[in-house]
Design a protein around this nucleic acid. Structure first.
Lengths: 234, 234
DNA sequence: TCTGTTAATATGTATAGACATTATTTTGCC
DNA sequence: GGCAAAATAATGTCTATACATATTAACAGA
């Protein structure tokens, strides 16, 4: 019912042969002229399929030698780290954001080091609720030099993450995922026992060399999990 | 000194315009015919550059409408879930695996449901050490119908994860990351206090429709973290 | 004014060929 | 045999063109 482009079909067939283990790392795949004959198409079509696979890191191509299945360097999975408001809404629950503090400061030494900048900083803390149950405590710093507009945003209604996604581009991000016992103040804000386990997600985003924002979210342990997948059903 | 292909130059220039913020999410970029005139080249060359950017998720291309800078999605970060033995070795530490139990059973009802198969199952538990400090407790089930060879493997020397990576191809995998208080038996095995927080990583891998293995790893909270990145400097 | 049809437009796919680049293999010479 | 030059075989880049497809915009009819 849906016509699949030929180069896409070639790409998919080789990809699944690799994923199913019929082609193993280091194996050589047929040369372009052979695939060209096999699929009865032009070389550019084959080339497009193979280039895409090479770009995705599944093939290594060497002139004169041929194309080879790349050995997977680390097992790279795709991790969904969605905006919390959107994620909760997506699973059909009511979302609420409750801001706890908001201030603008010139960063002290610790913040300057953490943010990697010395410009003025907006600091926000608050709690994310799903169905009126506290889900996560958030503490965030935003680089005002890069994002001046957020000083005028109404962060009591919109959580800063959602505002930033809509307004600020970034080029690079890093998430660190760990577990920790909830510090007393956070346990209180989340209605948990002191020392109860939390899933901690710390994210920094950059634009070029400059830090845009840094956020740490403490999730109530049994109310949230992150899912990373690898496979054809993306 | 190094001849950069034209399509690569076009790609890089647009990419850096996006990264520098000159082109912002939602902005329209020049149409192919315009870029074609600007760089004095054929449309296929421009097309290759733009297709690569679209494939990398930096552009959204719509017929008749044009090409637009995609808004970066917080979803889709690349998470490295390396084999523990390799990961620990990679950071220069001594690795040790201590097997605690190993048995082959016909799965009971709960296991059958969890594994999604009713064939015979190899169950293994054990502890991963880094520099003789316990790092993670692992409990794993392996589908013997798909991986008969592991029945003969020496799992007291090689952790099952490393053995599987070397011997078994898979087509699909899912990781669930959460936090939990360590159950008593696991806390004891890891030398932690009862109820201390753990980072829990549960992974299932499939080959086609069949589950290959399912593993749950409990990490001592402050000795391990997962890192997911997005950005050009991979 | 609304609605359905048609035309215009930007991207998507594919072709056939030319030449460039880079390893590898073969050849020819000492 | 050992070694350097030349042939060769694979991918890399690029062109010019053709037609397909999806979506917007313009237009006509009720």
């Amino acid at each position: 019912m849906k016509p699949v482009p030929l180069h896409e079909r070639i790409r998919a067939e080789i990809e699944s042969a690799i994923m199913a283990g019929h082609l193993r790392p280091g194996d050589r795949i047929p040369k372009e002229t052979e695939l060209m004959a096999q699929y009865d198409c032009a070389r550019m079509t084959v080339n497009k399929a193979l280039s895409a696979l090479a770009g995705a890191g599944m093939l290594e191509r060497r002139k004169r030698a041929g194309s080879f299945v790349a050995r997977p360097r680390a097992q790279s999975m795709v991790l969904d780290v969605p905006d919390l408001a959107a994620a909760i809404a997506a699973r059909g629950q009511r979302y609420r954001w409750d801001i706890a503090s908001r201030k603008i400061t010139a960063p002290d030494r610790a913040q300057a080091e953490a943010l990697g900048v010395s410009a003025k900083v907006l600091s926000v803390t608050g709690v994310h609720f799903a169905e009126e149950l506290p889900l996560a405590f958030e503490e965030r710093m935003v680089n005002l030099a890069l994002v001046p507009g957020i000083a005028d945003a109404d962060l009591s209604q919109t959580p800063p993450g959602s505002w930033l996604i809509a307004h600020v581009p970034w080029t690079e991000a890093e998430n660190r995922i760990s577990a920790a016992a909830a510090p007393p103040a956070i346990a209180r804000a989340l209605g948990m026992a002191r020392g109860a386990p939390c899933l901690v997600l710390e994210r920094r985003t950059w634009r070029g060399p400059d830090t845009v924002t840094r956020v740490r979210q403490y999730f109530v342990a049994d109310r949230y999990e992150l899912v990373a997948r690898f496979g054809p059903n993306l």
